[in-house]
């Protein structure tokens, strides 16, 4: 057990420890910890980024929920999340399973699917904007050539804009989840499948009773990560639709950006940032508790 007085050696070790920590912790406190605390504090003020800081209690939060653009942004973000996450993970899992069938060219396929993931969202947004152009875009010209006389104007159509953004986002990032699933699949011991084959299980039964349960921890992690990622959606919306048409694709982060850096209502924008944080916090909490309850290790 430790003695009350620390020995010289221990003191030296403590000093060394702090020295090791120092370069990081200064930056950490300044650029990570302080902003988190400050975000909460600013959200209770009417600050415009300059001049006096006046506290105004919960009035930012009250205004936030009475402002229909915020409600719409919140709704759109949930729409995006619900539209993107399940579909993306299902596709990723399917492809991972196909890739896991000891086929030739695994590396090429994997690299192809991963390619959009390493590219910047800004760049691929521009590519898709051109492809989806309502009159000249190759996609609509193709649709017209095979007989759809009136194809949708995709990003310019109130009903189609969000689904289009969702599909493009799935295209962009499902490769990541394929790789994670593939790694997970490779850890499933082969004797489990052999045993299932001996029991006369068909492919579907093997999937249902071996693959899926064995992948629950990974699926769980993927769901959480994809969901958190989906709540941060900004780049593609900012570039392709600017939140439009109307407010059909305005998301929370975009709302924060607009109120903070276009209108300079720092207090109000911080309040919406805190709401975003709370959503992410709840999802993380969910993960923490769920890990214990549902996941079969």
């Amino acid at each position: 057990m430790k003695s009350k007085k620390r020995s010289k050696l221990e003191k030296k070790e403590i000093l060394t420890a702090y020295l090791f920590l120092l370069p990081n912790i200064i930056g950490f406190l300044l650029f990570s910890f302080f902003p988190v605390v400050a975000a909460f504090i600013i959200s209770f003020t009417s600050w415009r980024g300059v001049g006096e800081i006046k506290f105004n209690g919960f009035s930012n939060y009250i205004e936030l929920f009475s402002h229909d653009t915020f409600r719409i942004a919140l709704g759109n973000t949930f729409y995006f999340s619900i539209g993107q996450v399940p579909l993306m993970l299902a596709i990723s899992l399917l492809i991972a399973i196909l890739l896991n069938q000891k086929i030739k060219g695994l590396k090429i396929y994997r690299a192809l699917y991963f390619m959009p993931y390493v590219s910047s969202m800004v760049a691929v947004s521009f590519i898709w904007m051109a492809l989806l152009h309502p009159t000249y875009g190759p996609i609509n010209l193709f649709l017209k050539s095979i007989g759809f006389t009136n194809p949708p104007s995709w990003l310019g159509d109130v009903k189609w804009a969000m689904p289009t953004v969702i599909i493009m986002s799935i295209w962009k990032s499902f490769g990541y989840f394929v790789v994670v699933y593939l790694a997970g699949l490779q850890t499933i011991p082969s004797h489990l499948y052999e045993a299932a084959t001996l029991d006369g299980a068909n492919a579907w039964q093997k999937f249902r009773n071996v693959t899926l349960p064995m992948l629950t921890p990974i699926t769980f992690l993927n769901v959480i990560m994809a969901t958190i990622g989906s709540f941060k959606v900004f780049d593609q919306v900012y570039i392709m639709t600017e939140g439009g048409p109307g407010r059909a694709t305005t998301t929370i982060v975009q709302y924060i950006y607009q109120t903070a850096f276009q209108q300079f209502r720092m207090g109000y924008a911080s309040a919406s940032a805190v709401i975003l944080f709370l959503i992410i916090f709840i999802i993380t909490l969910f993960q923490y508790r769920g890990q214990k309850k549902w996941v079969n290790y």
């Binding site: 302080f34 988190v36 600013i42 941060k232 924060i256 903070a260 911080s270 940032a273 975003l276």
Partner: peptide
């Protein structure tokens, strides 16, 4: 806490 939350401070 993502960057999006702390970008204002």
């Amino acid at each position: 806490v993502p960057f999006h939350v702390t970008m204002i401070p």
